[in-house]
Design a protein around this nucleic acid. Structure first.
Lengths: 138, 138
DNA sequence: TTAATATCCTACCAAATTGGTAGGGGAAAT
DNA sequence: ATTTCCCCTACCAATTTGGTAGGATATTAA
């Protein structure tokens, strides 16, 4: 399951996607509008910025905004930044790979099944974007 | 990601699947063979038994064994018993559903995308079984 | 009937993760 | 110069994870 933090991230990003092109949005606006604890949200938006999904502006008239169009930010990317691996096992992860001990990977049946599952999940998560989220809403 | 406990469960079940039809297998055999901490494994096998995947026999000649054929135990079932929900959000889970607060589910785009992702994942996890795990090994 | 075997049950525990909060520092605009 | 607003570090409580300890209970065999 995705952490609460990741769910907050999605809500905040959906809001920024809805307001894409309108300039910087205040953290406090997002916090109020989406009912996300302010200080926690600060942290989340900052991580998304460091991951190059957002840009920010300081001082009056400042805030956060999407760095690229909502169509170019897919769900897998967001999950990886805030939540971590998408695969069900570390030894199957593309971006967070870790070898498992006592296991010959080339012959491990568990690994093979989890690889198939991962690919099925990724096919969706890499295709769907913030744009899909906001336009599925209607 | 699946917990270590769930990974242990899969390894133990794969071992029991390989020895399906050979009568009860000792916890200690599984523990030795698959390098799983004994007392922790006791707990895991007991949960699998309560979930009706295993049967046990006490006393000499006792042990654990699969209640049904490896072809009839799919991966989704195992994950749900030991790990919990398969969906990425509680509001999207079929077996562990929980309403999310401040969210109109019929119009929530996040929910819609996560439903699609869940279905893609489940399609694999419900189709693949312990039998597939042990015969993918070769 | 008693000893040996093996699962079952309850309780506990340390370490890691999660979901935050507090408080101030620093850049930008007016 | 002051206000606005993002940025950074540190801390904290509650929950989850990954176990361990020890005995109770059921079964079999001698």
């Amino acid at each position: 399951m995705l952490s609460k933090k990741t769910r907050y991230a999605f809500r905040a990003l959906a809001y920024l996607a809805e307001n894409y092109g309108d300039g910087p949005i205040l953290i406090s606006s997002i916090s109020n509008e989406k009912k996300i604890p302010l200080k926690f949200l600060e942290n989340i938006l900052n991580e998304l910025k460091k991951a190059d999904l957002l840009e920010s502006k300081k001082g009056k008239g400042g805030g956060y905004f999407l760095k690229v169009s909502p169509k170019k930010i897919n769900l897998a990317t967001v999950i990886r930044v805030i939540n971590g691996p998408i695969a069900l096992l570390p030894c199957v992860s593309l971006n967070f790979y870790e070898k498992c001990d006592d296991c010959d990977e080339t012959h491990c049946g568990i690994r093979k099944m989890m690889t198939i599952a991962r690919d099925a999940t990724l096919k969706i998560l890499e295709k769907k974007t913030l744009h899909d989220i906001i336009f599925a809403t209607i």
